[in-house]
Simulated assay, not measured.
Amino acid sequence: MEEIKTITPAELKKKLEAGEKLEMVDVREDHEVAMGMIPGAKHIRMSDIPDNLDYFDKDKEYIFICRSSARSGNVCQYLQDKGYKVCNMVGGMLEWEGETV
């Protein structure tokens, strides 16, 4: 089983501040994202990922985000097994110190 690539909230914040165009997907539930999500992230609930595979492009890398990084880790494993490029934000939104929308 191939290890999943990870990024810390601080590393992600630096990349965004540097103007990097990143594909971020927040897999939390509706009531969680209502409390704020990272600007530019797309919201697809974890349970909806299998029905939204056509959204993902195998040539792009996606950074997955949840509250603590457990659910996003599961999503990363699932998509990586299907041949997608994934990265898990470790620590999740609990450790995010950047702005939210």
Results as ranks from 00 to 15, higher is better:
E2P: 14
E3M: 14
E3A: 15
E3I: 13
E3W: 12
I4W: 07
I4D: 01
I4V: 15
T6M: 12
I7A: 04
P9S: 03
A10C: 02
A10R: 12
A10W: 03
A10P: 02
K13M: 14
K14S: 07
L16M: 13
L16K: 05
E17C: 12
E17Y: 11
E17V: 06
G19P: 07
G19S: 07
E20Y: 00
E20I: 04
L22F: 06
L22T: 01
E23L: 13
M24D: 07
M24S: 05
M24T: 05
V25R: 07
D26W: 04
V27D: 02
V27M: 06
R28W: 14
E29H: 08
E29D: 00
E29T: 12
D30L: 08
D30A: 14
H31M: 09
H31Q: 10
H31L: 06
H31R: 12
E32W: 14
E32G: 12
A34R: 15
M35K: 15
M37Q: 15
I38N: 08
P39N: 08
G40I: 11
A41F: 07
A41Q: 05
A41V: 11
K42D: 11
H43F: 01
I44S: 11
R45C: 09
R45E: 12
S47H: 13
S47M: 10
S47A: 13
D48Q: 14
D48P: 01
I49L: 11
P50K: 12
P50M: 06
N52D: 10
L53N: 13
L53S: 11
D54I: 01
F56K: 03
F56G: 07
F56C: 12
F56I: 09
D57M: 11
K58H: 01
E61V: 03
E61L: 13
E61T: 15
Y62K: 04
Y62H: 08
I63G: 01
F64V: 04
F64N: 00
F64K: 00
I65H: 01
I65P: 06
I65C: 00
S68W: 01
S68L: 00
S68I: 05
S69V: 10
S69M: 05
A70R: 13
A70C: 05
A70H: 11
R71K: 02
R71T: 10
S72L: 04
G73P: 07
N74L: 13
N74S: 14
V75F: 06
V75L: 12
C76T: 03
C76M: 12
C76F: 02
Q77R: 15
L79W: 02
Q80G: 05
D81L: 05
G83D: 04
V86S: 04
V86F: 00
N88P: 04
M89Y: 02
M89A: 03
V90Q: 07
V90I: 15
V90K: 00
M93T: 04
L94I: 11
W96D: 03
E97M: 07
G98K: 01
G98I: 01
G98P: 00
G98C: 03
G98V: 01
E99M: 01
T100S: 08
V101I: 13
V101A: 12
